[in-house]
Design a protein around this nucleic acid. Sequence first.
DNA 1: ATAATAGTGTCTTTTAGACAATATCAC
DNA 2: GTGATATTGTCTAAAAGACACTATTAT
Lengths: 230, 230
Amino acid sequence: MDYDPHAFPPFAVTVDVVVLTLVDGRLHVVLVKRGVEPFKGDWALPGGFVRVDEDLATAAARELAEETGLGHPAPFLEQFGVYGDPGRDPRMRVISVGYVAVVPRVEEPQGGSDAAESFLAPVDEVDPASLAFDHRHILEDAIDRARTALERSTIATRFCPAEFTVAELREVYEAVWGVELDPGNFQKRVADVDGFLEPTGRHRRGGRGRPPELYRAGPASVIEPPMRRP
Amino acid sequence: MDYDPHAFPPFAVTVDVVVLTLVDGRLHVVLVKRGVEPFKGDWALPGGFVRVDEDLATAAARELAEETGLGHPAPFLEQFGVYGDPGRDPRMRVISVGYVAVVPRVEEPQGGSDAAESFLAPVDEVDPASLAFDHRHILEDAIDRARTALERSTIATRFCPAEFTVAELREVYEAVWGVELDPGNFQKRVADVDGFLEPTGRHRRGGRGRPPELYRAGPASVIEPPMRRP
DNA sequence: ATAATAGTGTCTTTTAGACAATATCAC
DNA sequence: GTGATATTGTCTAAAAGACACTATTAT
């Protein structure tokens, strides 16, 4: 780490944000259409420059808000990787820090103030070849991270609105893991985790069957023992 | 991601490598003594600049070899985080990519060709306050990553020489997790994982009890179901 | 009433853990 | 032999999973 501060190589640093959410029980990701070369017309992850005096996480939150309008409520954001192959950007050496954002179901997709257009795409329908740069890998890694995060951490609740039912939480697990879970066993399992779910005492009316109880996310951040992926 | 390549903010990019190994059944980390300001005289993680045309992982491997001489055999290297707070380096904006390296027990500590001095320190005796920059956090995160990696991945074998006994593998788990494990149950558990251990048929002689069988690391990289940390 | 979903209970299978029993060495 | 460690076996406790059963709504 001994170096001359005036002789460092020229790097640009960006953040790329993989915004995950659930729409109709399917995992979706926010993509923006590139308006300029290179990769003009291709889909890309929202992202951009880190400013000189800006924290990485702050930059991720800012880009998320600017490009997708999903700044409120403050989304869950977690760093999951760095991408720095020489040549990943044809113009210059760029190091990109990958963040996953998990946001509650959005009714009306988006409409960012910054980028031209943004889309919500079902992750299993995204054509990897249509993604700019190495965003195909970044997306893969983010989904991988989300899958394993559901095991030990309580982020699944971040896909849900402030108050939600156990069935909605189960939908999150089913969508992210791509499996079906037994409703009864799932219910007992999550109820057993201290601080995962906080009952509100109220119920959701209007559905077809017995009205389910509404829960809030509890204070726990860790699920112990971890949920097992079938 | 639309930008003018000539107007990017000036960033320096470094890699910091957390080299973990086992000495006498205790987890150790390689530290180097800083010879220049800032933090002159403090301990730091080996690391340095990423070159303009160099891959991040390549840079990590190169710094590891240069500063500690631990280039052969090619060590296990995994990226685990990025550290980019403005102000983490008092001289300029530096983004550092953290890598964990896991190397087999080294008999004679090191003697790098590059850095002044390098030490092998037991991780539980490292005084966090004595570490330069934010290396205290980087070290913590690396150990955390190692702990969880032992659950699902087979990296534990990377702490061992080419041929090793089940007791040596158990020592790895005990040292990294900081727990004691039942020898009998551990033996059965790891033997049950397909591709984790490959018997050599030979045994280690000269010890005090029944000569243990020698194993090689098998082809599996994933432990399914994961090992459970007590 | 019927269909649908929520939530509980019961039983079976699997897995983890405690710990005894046996094996094979150095001394 | 004794003491040490490796390895296997046995039993028990805990967890996961299949699935039946009850609860409560809309229609």
